[in-house]
Design a protein around this nucleic acid. Structure first.
Lengths: 203, 203
DNA sequence: GGTCAGACTTACCGGTCAGTAAGTTCGCCG
DNA sequence: CGGCGAACTTACTGACCGGTAAGTCTGACC
């Protein structure tokens, strides 16, 4: 057993193998899901033995959680950055969408592993609270929408919660089509979808 | 081995146990996913032995496929019915959404098992083509949108594919929030969301 | 040069998995 | 009554699972 004070199980970074394990695990968990991914496969993919995995991570669940948290944080940081830029609310929404899609094009595993995490109820329930994680995403976008109302870019009578569902839904629907069917996302998709959502379908 | 001519493995309906197995399997696959659901658990849930499962279904994958197909067909039939009713395009969209949400409220497992099916890549790839299944859903909705343009309910310059993503995305985003977080869907949600999509966010 | 910890490997464990071979019960038909 | 097939059960197999005990190698420090 590894001593408590210098346990690498909870420390982050540093080791090259550790990073390789996380990379391989991200791919496998994204592709096959939690239950269908074996620690043996992760070890073989990372060109190490199984106990080497357990040297760096307490157990399978801990490895999975690390993968999820790293992936999710990357996306959240990305969105936060794009939203914080100057410009109108609509411009910042557009920038966020561009950043999101660019990230997905570079790392299609990201969305897949997050989808896997959301529907695998048996794992990480006490450690990661997905409900509050989604809530924090909402808390990220809602102030932007409220600012849109204050600035007169968005009608004052719309339910911002509904608006959020429309915007995020359109974004995710397209993203899912990309990662599941390899249907590429056009570069001008954010502009088009925002024009549609702001302008409406009615003539 | 069961003879080819009278194999119940591919026949549908009839047996009471068979129906019970499908019901239990639907719940377990929805809740835990394909890989994390064991045939033992299904058998115990259906109050029978494991070989009884294999009497009715060729293997685990065949059972899963039956669950998916049954679940998906139920939803498609539902939408087709609601869309075929008389009224304006927008009214028929609204009716479809109401029908969809009512179905989900009655069978939250349905969406969960369909989500599980979509991301479990190892199963049913040759037997069920999810890409063409999604395409058939699109073929279900697109004519309605086109009719909307013809009737003057929808602006002629909108990309109907984009419109579909916005509508379906908003619907699914809310549905997912319902099945994953038990956040109830307000009865007037279809009206509200369609008002938003048709009217647009801009003042 | 001895010790000692970090970073692993070899070899293994108990348990669970999907799937099966062979036997049993039961209702129906001749 | 005899047999025959549908609808199961009991008992089992080999593979694979997550996890571990115990040993090994290597470099740093004294």
């Amino acid at each position: 057993m590894v001593s408590a004070v210098s346990s690498p199980g909870s420390k982050s970074g540093e080791s090259e193998l550790r990073a390789r394990i996380i990379d391989v695990a991200t791919t496998l968990f994204a592709e096959r899901g939690y239950a269908a991914t074996s620690m043996r496969d992760v070890a073989s993919g990372a060109s190490c033995t199984k106990p080497a995995l357990y040297y760096h991570f307490d157990n399978k669940e801990a490895l999975f959680l690390e993968v999820i948290v790293a992936t999710t944080n990357a996306v959240v940081d990305l969105l936060r950055g794009a939203m914080g830029a100057p410009g109108t609310v609509r411009e910042r929404m557009q920038a966020s969408m561009h950043a999101y899609f660019a990230h997905l094009r570079a790392h299609p595993r990201a969305l897949k592993v997050m989808m896997q995490a959301e529907i695998s109820t048996d794992v990480g329930q006490p450690t990661i609270d997905f409900k509050s994680m989604r809530q924090s995403h909402i808390n990220l976008v809602m102030p932007l929408l409220r600012e849109g109302v204050d600035r007169g870019e968005i009608r004052a009578d719309v339910d911002l919660y509904d608006a959020l569902h429309v915007i995020a839904g359109a974004m995710d629907a397209r993203a899912i089509q990309f990662v599941l069917e390899d249907e590429p996302i056009p570069v001008d998709y954010p502009e088009r979808i925002l024009a549609l959502i702001f302008g409406g379908l009615s003539p």
